[in-house]
Design a protein around this nucleic acid. Sequence first.
RNA 1: GGGGGAGUAGCUCAACGGUUAGAGCAUGGCUCUUAUACAGCCCCGGUUGGAGGUUCGAAUCCUCCCUCCCCUACCA
Length: 1114
Amino acid sequence: MFRPVSSKPDLVAQEHDILNIWRERRTFARLRAQNAGRERWSFLDGPITANNPMGVHHAWGRAYKDLFQRFWAMQGRDQRYQNGFDCQGLWVEVNVEKDLGFTNKRDIEAYGIAEFVSLCKQRVLTYAARQTEQSIRLGMWMDWNDPHELRRLRDRLAEDPSQQVTIRSTAGIDVTDTAEMLVGRLGMPDLGGSYFTFSNENNYLIWSFLAECHRRGWLYKGHDTMPWCARCGTGISQHEMTEGYADREDPGLTVKFPLVDHPGESLLVWTTTPWTLTSNVAAAVGKELRYVKVRQGEEIFWLGRGMAKRALEGPFKVLEERLGQELEGWRYTGPFDDLAAVQSAFAGADGKPAYEHRVVVWDQVGEEEGTGIVHIAPGCGAEDFALGKSLGLPMIAPLDESGIVLPGFGAFSGRDVRDVADPIIESLKHRHRFYRLETVTHRYPHCWRCGTPLVFRLVDEWYISMGAVYDVPREQLTPEQVDASLRYQIMEVIRDIKWIPGFGYERELDWLVNMHDWMISKKRYWGLALPIYDCDCGTINVLGSREELAERAVEGWAEFEGHSPHRPHVDAVKIRCSGCGQPVGRISDVGNPWLDAGIVPFSTMPHGAAAVDGKSWFPADFVTESFPGQFRNWFYSLLAMSTVLRRETPFKALFGYALVYGEDGRPMHKSWGNAIDFDEAAERMGVDVMRWMFANARPEDNILFGWHAADEARRRLLVLWNVYSFFVTYARLAEWDPRQAAPAVAKRAPLDRWILSRVARLANAVEMEFKAYDALAAAKEIDGFIEELSTWYLRRSRKRFARNADPTDRAAAFATMHQALEALTRIMAPIMPFLSESIYQNIVVTSVAGAPDSVHLTPWPTDELKGLNDRALQASMEVAMRVVDLARTLRSQTGIKVRQPLARLWLAMPGADRLVERDALLELVKDEVNVKSIELIGDESALVDRRVKPLLPKIGKKLGSAIPAVMAAARENRFELLADGSVLMGGVTLAADEVEILATPKPGTVVAHDEGLVVVIDTELTAELRAEGDARELQRAIQDARKEAGVELDDEVKVRVDAPAAARNALEEYIRSVEIETRSTIVFGVVPPSADTVAVELDSGAVTIGLAGKAVAP
RNA sequence: GGGGGAGUAGCUCAACGGUUAGAGCAUGGCUCUUAUACAGCCCCGGUUGGAGGUUCGAAUCCUCCCUCCCCUACCA
């Protein structure tokens, strides 16, 4: 017998039970064994940053990942099930710094890089363990490391990285190595478990990638002015800029640059970054722009003509007008010519000034903002740098890597760049160079990690060239051009990918066209050690492997030996320069973390000789990640690296989804009170509710996640639960068991055959949707099925499950419901692994011989159910359901309750003869809407009129301006039906296929209609009908009373009914059937005051009923 | 600043140029039911952001304006 099921499930507790069952029975391991060696489905997990606990936003993507893995497992596919952790980079560093209370890089150096890097590793292990536990809670089936082992490894690493430690692989084999080396070997085949991007293998493979880039001449050192975060002390690459833009208020400062050759006259220049004025080198004007000389009081200024009104304060008089090019070469006195840094930058070889501030022409000068004369500081802006370089201007770089003004800048030296604006303005006022100060709000880049406003700094960084952008359409490129430009090669590669949603392809393409070279260096500590050895002789050595490092090492190897390829140990090694033969050290930079994530197809899916059994998992069939940002990050790095190494795509299909927002439509934010922690969500709403919510979200839109949304999602699941609970309750009462013989499907009621056909169709539809990676469409199918299972199949079948039902029919109903539920649990298992498992365990595992002991070990049911499909029956049933809807509408319009039986229902149904099982279906309708008989009438009936609906899309173009007349005729029912089926109306003749003939009710009767169906009810109530209605009303009241009294379903009760004589008479005929339905014995008479009483207003009079206790002792 | 979207019921979103703009949620009302803290139905709710234009007909196409979002960008 089935285990009893509460009607109010504790979903959360149930999920924990299921987790225990899976663990005890090693269900996942058995699933893997079951599919091992079969056709593969290769999923590549995008690494989650192991830096914090997992959030509900991670849960969205992880729900998709698990969903599709489970689905393909049910398709019998072999899989890798490897989760990934992203480990290296600034994310982790910033948090470790925060924990230590550090404010900048000098603190790290003082603390010790080795210790700092070790803490970074420990933090990764801490959160990898945590996220592993959370992911398991989510139901995600992966080849997980034991979280306790990860924590133990972390603790051993903290104690002494060189100590020998033994850990158990996920396959159960003990492996011994030093703590540091074991950490570096995580995710490798011998240890199993999640891959970690800090692994030795991952790092060395990036080396080989970089060496390959170098071999092809694509790796170079750039000297440029880059966005720079002073707090983090590192440049920010173009890939990282997106999230960092925010509105910011800055000073809008207008200053005077006195002209050397025009005494008393000054240029007016505008800037929002006062600190860059110390490094001013030139002032740029537009060649074709017009400039004016104006007088204000005693002073004379030059500025753009179009800007004068806005930029000048107070009245002015225009004295002269010139083109920008006429100003070229004018010399002016710089704002801070007395600074040593300026003097030395301008000095020639002999120490005398070789350069003077002057006006230059620049095509990018515009007239939208400022004064039309642009302050140029090549050391403080990328565009300024480019201009300065092309004109051979001196460069002045005022900041060190922490944003502190360098020596040589007088009183400003040693101050933080963020604090020098005011002193500079003061100083300018002092020097009579100040003109005006306002406040400007503009979009300004900030550090994506720590939020510090970026500055621009002149630095050396390392880049991978993305190749030329040719000024011709792509299809006209020659193969040679494509071979020379990586970006076009990537563009070719991405054509082979199925992008879901489709706009992903365009977006990636757009990024590829516009992207700059890939800046891969970071002046930090925790990350990939770039294998670049930049020799003073001009030779750049790039190593491709640990072996090459060993081979070429000339010193420091002993210090490195036994360590992961991280700073500081790897920095100890010096190699022999291939150019000059001298020892050369590694550059101190670490790598861009997207290199770490981009190499994982190669580090986790070895191919060729490296493949474990000669078969490669590369390329992946599927990847899925949140798309905002990833087009320039993970997707990009995957594609770039795979294109360089193999010139083919690393994945065949990409499914992108948007962001998780709070219920209020804003990003989740702790301080806004709309954030929900994953753990809290899991333990309060349950993960299946969450997964159901996620599956029902439109992936291309942001999902609004919250408690109300969860309640709504849970509702549909409770409908299913109620069906299940009903089934189990009655199966237990009937002691029904799936092993009992049931009538053959063909012999069952049409209702049974219909729901089985329905579930067969569901299996097929959901399979198709999952294969198209459309979880939403699949969820909608399932949702629709649950709705019909509950509100039609079960609703119409309820009586069939009762004890007094026909035994054969009852057996058929039980068997049908059982099969439908069993199939449904399998179909929804990928989305809701717990709920489906819980139902399956109870109704299948306990009682079906030979059934797998988990729903997740069952195959996808489409093939098993195929034979049950019956399209004609489904179409007919839909008509019946619509008739019921119409009849209900009529009842509610006339105010006649469904409990009140009606004599007749008239039904006009075009094509009624095409319906299969017509009589049986009409019986269902009769029962459902409580009418004694249904009479079919033709559309010629006196009850309906005909109406003509012109099919506008067909006739619109043809008729043009005649349309209004035709439509008016249609509205007013003015038309003539011709013998050949055509229709004359509004002065034109419409062919039969240009119109639809509708049956519509004649006014004056109670009718409802819908697409040709017309339903009319007979509202006349005879005395018998009223009496029967009263009986049902009484029955209902007794059931209510039973419920109030908390009587068990199976208990017999005694009921006293206090009714006037008229009511007694009316009810008399039906008392016996009411007794049966309500499992009671009815006695008319006074209700004792002690009983639970209920008052009912019957048609035949007011009655009071009272439960007088149980009739039969239990 | 450049490019692309989107503005439709209180909220979240639908609606090949086709005449009465629909769903879900929320509010309110009703109903069904020992599946009993389930569910169903109905009502209410709209100048389709605004103004013009094209068309027999516009939420839909065009122009301008307003607002928001996304992508992109160091314009000083």
